[in-house]
Every structure is written in structure tokens, then in C-alpha cells.
């Protein structure tokens, strides 16, 4: 077998493995979130389908399959059909570049644990993550219905608020690691995690992380108690589920980014394999999403814009200047 065929095979295996991981995560994230939110409100959550409701996501999926597929009469058919696909595809494409561990050497071959290994992986991921929002915007505009349009308008307002903070907050670890390669960024944290150098950048990233995945303090596009279901009001069945899928893939990806950039990725004591450490740290962020969902009320979108442009942006810019200054003049920095 030629080298290219083996390379393609490895790619396919890695791709389907990632797809399996993400699918299981999305299925059971819905169960887990309902369970945790329920207990936070002194309820039980899903309990009836299977042991402690563990088959609930499967039942939900079967239900979504057999739902009536309705399209509004005035909807723009092309965009209406493509909107859920756009969101899902770009979210999955962003997830392709996540490294799940240090590169392996298997049968004399050098195998990286991300599906596509890019020297500027973070740029690619940020680009794909911002394309996900086009799915939301198309969904809102194509239906020609009032609630989706308000949802799409809020999504636009949200995108121009968080995009900048997301990228600039990640710039600090990039400057410190001196690389855009996610594997090298993790390697640069082998002495001390970047959270201890960059707590301010981390808080800024955390805030924009909730905004990028449209979760509770900033779930403006689908404000359930104001806009029915926001941009996906008119979507039914599997198209509706695809939006959820895209949202959970974004949560998965962004939580991984937070771990890789600020919490040392797969680094940890050697009694557990690196992948285990990565997922333990990642689980903390997934819990943080649920925790904030059970706690916070929603911000208005003008408040979100004020937070990002008037408060976070100056802080992040000062932080970047300080980071550059400190590295240039060799201020206390463990090596």
C-alpha cells in the first residue's frame, strides 16, 4: 500500500472516531444538562426512560425523526434547507483541528491526535467558529417570520461583540507560546499553565466563550422566554435537532480551546493518560456551562456590546501590550 492510501485511511479512522466522540457527547450532554439543571432546581430531571433516564436522548432522537417537517409558505427554501447544515458542518470542521493528545509514534508512523494538523490551527478554528453563526443568521432571515428575524438580528449584534474579544484574548497565550500551533501552545505550558500568567485574558475568554456558543448569560438569539425559540422557531424535526447538534459541537470545541490555551491541555501527572487529563479538565468547563445556565439571567444585547467593546476590549488590549512588554524585557517568566 502506498503512503497516500495509508494516510487517507488514518484520516478516515480519526475522522470517524471524532464524529463518534462528538455524537455521544451531544446525545448525553442533553441528558446530563437536564439532570443537573433539574437537581439545581430540586427536581429530578429525566428518570423514566431507562435507568435514571439514560435512554431519554435516544427517545428524543426517535421523536425528532418522526416529527412533521413543516416549511413556512414564504420561506426562502434554499436558505431554509441550508441553514442547519451550514451550522453543523462548520462546527464539525472547527472540531477537526482539536488535538486530543501529544503526537503518537505508531508502527513507525508519526500520528497526530487531531484529524487535521495545521501549523496555524487556532486561526482555522476561529474562522470556522465564526462561520457557524451564518447558519443562525440564514435560519433567522430565510423564514420571513418575526421571532426568527429578531433572533438573527441579535445574533449579528452578538457576533460583532464577542468575535473580537475571543480572538484577542487568545492572542495572549499565542504571544507567550510564540506559535499558532495548538500542540506547541500546550507544550509551552509544561512548566506552568497559562491561567496563572494570564488570569485576565482567561476571564475575557470565558465571557466570550459563553457568547460564542450562545449559552445562558448570552443566549440572545434563542431567548426562549422572549422569542419562542429565537432563530429556530420555524424549524421542526431533524432540522431543529441539527441546530442543537451544532450548538453542542461549538460548546465541545470552545471548552477544548479553553483547556488547551489556559489549563495546559493534556499535561498532568503521569498516572493517567494525557487524553484523560484533557477530558477531565474539559468536563469542568462543560459543568461550568450548565452551572451558569442554572444560575444567571440573560443579558440584553446592548449590555453584551457594552461589556465587550467598552470594558473587555480595553482590558485585553492593555493585557496584550503588557504581555509583549514583559516578554520583550524578560520580566519574571518561568522557563
Amino acid at each position: 500500500m502506498s503512503d497516500a492510501v495509508i494516510g487517507a485511511l488514518i484520516f478516515l479512522v480519526k475522522f470517524f472516531l471524532l464524529f463518534a466522540i462528538i455524537s455521544v457527547f451531544v446525545l448525553y450532554a442533553t441528558w446530563y444538562e437536564r439532570k443537573v439543571i433539574g437537581h439545581m432546581q430540586q427536581r429530578i430531571g429525566p428518570k423514566r426512560v431507562g435507568w435514571h433516564g439514560l435512554l431519554q436522548p435516544v427517545a428524543d432522537m426517535i421523536k425528532a425523526f418522526f416529527k412533521e417537517d413543516s416549511i413556512p409558505r414564504d420561506a426562502d427554501k434554499l436558505f431554509f434547507w441550508s441553514a442547519p447544515v451550514i451550522g453543523t458542518v462548520f462546527a464539525m470542521m472547527a472540531a477537526l483541528a482539536i488535538p486530543f493528545g501529544p503526537p503518537l509514534v505508531l508502527f513507525g508512523r508519526h500520528i497526530t491526535l487531531d484529524v487535521v494538523h495545521l501549523p496555524s490551527g487556532i486561526l482555522y478554528m476561529l474562522a470556522m467558529l465564526s462561520l457557524v453563526s451564518f447558519g443562525v443568521i440564514f435560519a433567522g432571515l430565510s423564514t420571513k417570520s418575526k421571532y426568527p428575524i429578531i433572533g438573527a438580528q441579535r445574533e449579528v449584534a452578538q457576533v460583532i461583540s464577542y468575535e473580537l474579544i475571543l480572538a484577542t484574548a487568545l492572542l495572549n497565550p499565542v504571544i507567550m507560546a510564540g506559535s499558532l500551533d495548538l500542540t506547541k501552545i500546550v507544550d509551552a505550558q509544561s512548566h506552568l499553565w497559562f491561567i496563572f500568567y494570564q488570569p485576565v485574558a482567561f476571564v475575557c475568554f470565558l465571557i466570550s466563550m459563553f457568547a460564542v456558543s450562545a449559552r445562558v448569560p448570552f443566549d440572545l438569539p434563542e431567548a426562549e422566554n422572549e422569542l419562542v425559540a429565537g432563530f429556530m422557531t420555524e424549524f421542526t424535526g431533524m432540522k431543529f435537532s441539527l441546530f442543537y447538534f451544532a450548538q453542542y459541537v461549538v460548546i465541545f470545541t470552545v471548552s477544548m480551546l479553553a483547556v488547551i490555551f489556559f489549563f495546559g491541555g493534556w499535561l498532568g501527572p503521569s498516572f493517567l493518560p494525557p487524553v484523560a487529563w484533557l477530558f477531565i479538565k474539559w468536563a469542568f468547563f462543560i459543568f461550568l456551562y450548565t452551572w451558569s445556565w442554572g444560575t444567571f439571567p440573560r443579558y440584553r444585547y446592548d449590555q453584551l456590546m457594552n461589556i465587550s467593546w467598552l470594558i473587555l476590549l480595553p482590558i485585553v488590549i492593555i493585557n496584550i501590550l503588557w504581555t509583549g512588554f514583559a516578554i520583550q524585557f524578560g520580566l519574571p517568566y518561568l522557563h
Binding site: V36, H39, M40, Q42, R43, I44, K47, G294, T295
Partner: peptide, 17 residues
């Protein structure tokens, strides 16, 4: 707020099945 919700998370649910 976060302290309140994490406290309730470990309390017994009041649901009657």
C-alpha cells in the same frame, strides 16, 4: 448566584414520583 445553585445541586429533590 453560583454559590446558591451549587448548594441546591446537592440537596434532596422535592419531586414526588
Amino acid at each position: 448566584g453560583l454559590a446558591v445553585t451549587i448548594g441546591y445541586l446537592f440537596r434532596r429533590p422535592v419531586t414526588v414520583q
